[in-house]
């Protein structure tokens, strides 16, 4: 579904992705690694937010190197950001319906009905008239999730979506993600939440220096005796 082929990406003189190759299929894949390992950059490259320097990324048969494909790929892979990035001038319902109306061309009434379903799913159907500034961080992030889900993407890209939240809000957001995962949504998740990863991940990917160091099913990963992975997990759990 998503094929990453020998992808390189550097910012100035730092190579962030180093001829990285990996395929992503159905299910939930959690990507971990030290900061600077290239996790976020990988997601941003798949979404076409960063231009790759070499290699290719193919989503449902569409190569990202073809400029005309980028928009369609973005429709297929919706991203949720660390900083929520809700549109501050629109209320919750408008935030969620903006892209179905203007990108998918769905009628406003239908888009709103559809939005209500997803807002219910994230537990915010009461807040449709609120503006982002009136919501807590956790609520804002749940709106962002609904906004991504309404596009019915082939894959949902979650880029450290709880890093800007305090623990209480983190768990409210992760609960929502778990529920969505159980419904069979394909997700690529960059996170540092180990226990969450244990619960939802079908597959664990560990990046180091812009390359894939480990790519295993969840159980094997967490019982791995690879020294680097063990040290990484210890460090995170210690925190």
């Amino acid at each position: 579904m998503i094929q990453v082929r020998n992808v390189s990406k550097s910012f100035g003189s730092t190579n962030v992705l180093n001829e990285l190759s990996i395929d992503f299929d159905k299910g939930v894949t959690v990507i971990m690694g030290q900061s600077g390992a290239g996790k976020s950059t990988l997601l941003r490259c798949i979404n076409g937010l960063e231009k790759i320097d070499g290699g290719d990324i193919v989503v449902d048969g569409l190569s990202i190197n073809e400029k005309k494909n980028v928009r369609e790929i973005r429709e297929k892979c919706s991203m949720v950001f660390q900083q929520f990035n809700l549109f501050p001038h629109l209320n919750v319902l408008e935030n969620v319906t903006l892209s179905p109306i203007h990108v998918l061309g769905i009628e406003k009434k239908k888009a709103q009905e559809k939005a209500m379903r997803f807002l219910e799913m994230v537990g915010l159907s009461e807040k449709i008239k609120s503006y982002p500034s009136q919501l807590s961080g956790g609520q804002q992030q749940r709106v962002a999730i609904a906004r991504a889900l309404i596009m019915e993407p082939s894959a949902l890209l979650l880029d450290e979506i709880t890093s800007a939240l305090d623990p209480e809000m983190t768990s409210e957001v992760l609960e929502v993600i778990e529920r969505i995962a159980r419904e069979g949504t394909t997700m690529l998740v960059v996170t540092h939440e180990v226990s969450f990863a244990r619960r939802v991940a079908d597959r664990m990917v560990f990046l180091e220096n812009g390359k894939v160091l480990a790519d295993q099913n969840t159980e094997d990963f967490f019982s791995s005796n690879n020294e680097r992975i063990m040290r990484f997990l210890q460090k995170i759990e210690f925190n």
Partner: peptide
């Protein structure tokens, strides 16, 4: 970025 990632 948010708008782009929604396909706009």
């Amino acid at each position: 970025e948010a708008a782009y990632s929604l396909g706009m």
